[in-house]
Amino acid sequence: MPELDDLDRRIIACMQGDFPVCETPYAEVAVQLGIAEDELIGRLRALLERKVLTRFGPMYQVERMGGAFVLAALAVPEVDFESVCARVNAFPEVAHNYRREHVLNMWFVLATETQDGIAEAIAGIERATGLPVYAFPKEREYFVEMKLEVRQ
């Protein structure tokens, strides 16, 4: 795991909140953290380069734009895992993808701009991998809020 100091932890906690929409938002956040604007920008750049942060920006809700998010899974034979993974990840509709311990060992989220895009992406992945895609569209959302404190 990468080494993080106290300031990194405070920045990660702070940046999981609502980033301001104003002319100089980094300066505003830097004041809250008691550091200089250029230090905040430099730290953020380093955290992104080190992949401690996977992304920083607006989180778009494709459903609110007429599109769809669908969780899907594949049962990939172990020997083919890497090649199947490369083929699945090559689809721009695959927003994220996790390996999990189960017969269904590859779980990914499809994000498309239209409802029809999901079926097209699933058909494309089935053609590219030769494996059936299990689709688990959400029927109801009870809670979503991904904010995690730094544990280390």
Binding site: M1, P2, L4, I12, M15, Q16, G17, D18, F19, V21, L44, L47, R50, K51, V52, L53, T54, R55, F56, G57, P58, M59, Y60, Q61, R64, M65, M146, L148, E149, V150, R151, Q152
Partner: peptide
């Protein structure tokens, strides 16, 4: 409108200790 859920950062949860 909720088209943007929020503006902010997404940590790699492995990298921040949630292994």
């Amino acid at each position: 409108d909720g088209v943007i859920r929020r503006i902010g950062a997404v940590p790699n949860h492995y990298a921040i200790g949630w292994t």
